[in-house]
């Protein structure tokens, strides 16, 4: 086996995985804290990319600099969705009804994106991102490496917020035992809204990074939701570290199987890994960050 090629493949997987991690962390948080599977996750990601596109076109804002704005906009949309529709569905029906709500919301949001931006393929790239670096025979794609770095920074910020800030602790407490957290004065409804908002914000931020690396269209949402599913199951539910681990695994499985078995095989391997992981460790490598494993 060629050592450089193996190393190159591992590096490619790492870079790809970092992006998967960031794109999945919001999904993971909502799943971990609210128990809701958010089928609108992929649309949140794309909405982030499109808002970045609009900011770039209207104000000339660089995509990376647009991340805070996009985060805020998506946080408001996400929080509003939870406050109005998701909470109503969970209260009146069951946790499972939230699936229908988020599915319906994804249909609506996607059509809104099409209405605003058309069905065309778009791209957030600027040419300076296409630089190439050579490190000891390994070729590193500048745009993707930038994406990986940005992902790591954002994930670290989330991890710090969840552990060091009061709100973060309240989120974790609610996830572990919403009833007990309520007794301690935590308003769980507020925490749910906040979690949904923060998660949507992270999805939007990852949309910017995805948009800088790959072209996107309004119909990619299912792809990203599915990737988030896989990432969360591989890594673990509800924590940035779990998302990071899951994303990296997904990236490595994808590039290794593509390089050494055949470029058309990664999807088969990804889903087999997912099934295997579910059977062996249903809560992912790290388990559920909050609740005891079922």
């Amino acid at each position: 086996m060629n050592g450089t090629l193996l190393f190159q493949t591992l590096v490619d997987g790492l870079i790809l995985g970092g992006i998967f991690s960031l794109s999945a962390v919001g999904f993971s948080l909502i799943f971990g804290v609210l128990g809701v599977v958010n089928l609108a996750h992929g649309v949140f990601i794309l909405a982030g990319a499109y808002i970045g596109l609009w900011l770039k076109g209207a104000l000339g804002l660089d995509p990376l600099a647009a991340i805070p704005v996009v985060f805020l906009v998506l946080a408001v949309i996400g929080g509003a969705l939870q406050r109005t529709l998701v909470s109503a569905a969970v209260q009146r029906g069951s946790l499972m009804t939230s699936l229908l709500i988020t599915f319906g919301a994804s249909l609506i949001l996607r059509d809104l994106l099409i209405l605003a931006f058309g069905p065309d393929i778009q791209s957030l790239s600027s040419t300076w991102l296409l630089r190439t670096y050579h490190v000891g025979g390994v070729v590193i794609d500048g745009a993707r490496a930038t994406g990986l770095l940005a992902s790591l920074v954002l994930l670290a910020m989330l991890a710090i917020a969840l552990h060091a800030m009061k709100v973060g602790r309240a989120i974790r407490a609610t996830a572990q035992q919403s009833f007990a957290a309520g007794l301690c004065g935590v308003d769980s409804n507020r925490i749910y809204t906040l979690t949904f908002g923060v998660s949507a914000g992270f999805a939007g931020a990852s949309g910017i990074i995805i948009g800088m690396i790959n072209p996107f269209s309004p119909f990619d949402d299912a792809y990203w939701t599915l990737n988030a599913f896989v990432t969360v199951v591989l890594g673990g539910v509800g924590s940035p570290v779990g998302a990071l681990l899951g994303g990296l695994m997904l990236g490595e499985i994808s590039t290794l199987s593509s390089q050494y078995i055949g470029p058309r095989f990664p999807n088969v391997f990804i889903f087999c890994a997912l099934l295997l992981m579910l059977i062996v460790r249903p809560n992912g490598l790290l388990g559920n960050a909050y609740k005891a494993s079922v």
């Binding site: 490619d12 790809l16 994808s254 470029p263 058309r264």
Partner: peptide, 13 residues
């Protein structure tokens, strides 16, 4: 490659 390509690094290698 798979139907939706997000990474072609191995084919390009």
């Amino acid at each position: 490659l798979p139907e939706q390509v997000s990474d072609a690094s191995s084919a390009l290698a």
